[in-house]
């Protein structure tokens, strides 16, 4: 037996869980190795010190504080979703997650229906986020080059703050000229 093996099994030796042959090997090593004898004495002393060390107890009034807290915990309302189907699954989901998923799907459907245009109608073009920021004066771009009046005019028209009723509607004939141009090019 070498010192590494000795140290690996020192606790098992102290607790007398070694086989008899191992105990004999241990004892033989102990007789010849002062270092391991010191380690064994040190471990025994440390374990003894820990075992007889002070036992800590809860402070007085612990039970009262605990039972008062339990009273409060009992009174606390528990959400119905949290309580429903305790330990059961709905389509593989815990009830609260199933409920949340269902709510999310419903929300997505409602939003999708709200966004899609109704049949035969055209969508009003509206930039609601720009309301209240219309600036009729020509702006300077960072480069310092003034914008062309024509571009400005077009932009201001598109970004104009119209109420939904007044918004510009795209009519079927609006692209007539452009289609004509394409046709002309083909010719």
């Amino acid at each position: 037996m070498d010192c590494y093996e000795f140290q690996d099994k020192v606790s098992v030796y102290i607790e007398k869980e070694l086989t008899l042959s191992d105990v004999n090997r241990f004892d033989t090593h102990l007789d010849s190795c002062k270092g391991c004898s010191a380690v064994l004495a040190g471990v025994r002393s440390a374990v003894a010190a820990v075992r007889v060390s002070e036992r800590f107890a809860v402070s007085s009034g612990f039970n009262n504080r605990l039972f008062n807290r339990l009273k409060v915990e009992k009174v606390k309302p528990v959400s119905r979703i949290g309580r429903m189907g305790h330990g059961r699954n709905i389509f593989g989901y815990q009830p609260r997650y199933a409920f949340a998923s269902l709510a999310a799907v419903a929300l997505i459907i409602v939003l999708t229906v709200g966004i899609l245009p109704k049949g035969g109608e055209t969508m009003p073009v509206q930039l609601s986020t720009q309301q209240g920021f219309a600036d009729p004066a020509p702006k300077q771009i960072n480069s310092g080059v003034p914008l062309q009046p024509s571009i400005l005019a077009e932009d201001s028209e598109e970004d104009s703050l119209e109420t939904p009723g007044e918004s510009r509607r795209v009519k079927p004939g609006d692209f007539g000229g452009k289609i004509q141009l394409v046709k002309d090019k083909k010719r």
């Binding site: 140290q7 690996d8 099994k9 020192v10 380690v39 040190g42 471990v43 440390a46 820990v50």
Partner: peptide
């Protein structure tokens, strides 16, 4: 078992 043994060895070193 190994953790307890190593803990005791470290503890005896510290003490």
């Amino acid at each position: 078992k190994s953790r307890i043994n190593r803990a005791r060895l470290q503890l005896q070193e510290m003490l």
